[in-house]
Amino acid sequence: MKGVVFNLLEEIVTLHYGLSAWDELLEKTQLEGAYTSLGSYPDTDFWKLVAAAAAAKGKSDDEIVRWFGRGALPLLAKRYPHFLTPHTHTRAFLLTLNDIIHPEVRKIYPGADVPVFDFDISTPDSLAIGYKSARKLCAFAEGMIEGAAVHYGERVEITQPQCMKHGDEQCLLICSFQSATQR
């Protein structure tokens, strides 16, 4: 896993709970914690930190990962604004993942293992996203989608009728978007 993921996690934890909270997580997990964005680190480091945070907050790993995804998006939007500014809706933004954003990620982080999404665009207001990855980070995807919806001032409802964690071949995220002001 690329160091940038750990940097984002540190930043969010620090933002919400202070510098010492991150120090505590590192202490609990016995990790050194010197992560740089361009480096690659074991996936197990990530899951150890997630598990420690989940234990501290009394939540599940998936809930922590989803919260992380939600928090990560605005940070990425600040760092790489040019990916978000061309769009006004979450749906349109998401559809650029495979062809624009992830290829760019691979350029900056050689060796980055980014997923390829399987989009079903047959309905205008919703989007069915197929996700298949050995990392099984569907919760992170959900969080990011929610974060994106916030960014574009939309509301999104995500259901997940299929999940690899439940033995399905792939995860299926069905997202329905609504303009926040329509309510």
């Binding site: 964005s37 361009l38 350029k107 982080y109």
Partner: peptide, 18 residues
């Protein structure tokens, strides 16, 4: 400084990629 260094490295990596 670290973030700046990382940003510079990212930019160089991208150029190298091109």
């Amino acid at each position: 400084a670290r973030l700046e260094a990382e940003a510079i490295a990212e930019k160089s990596t991208r150029e190298l990629y091109e």
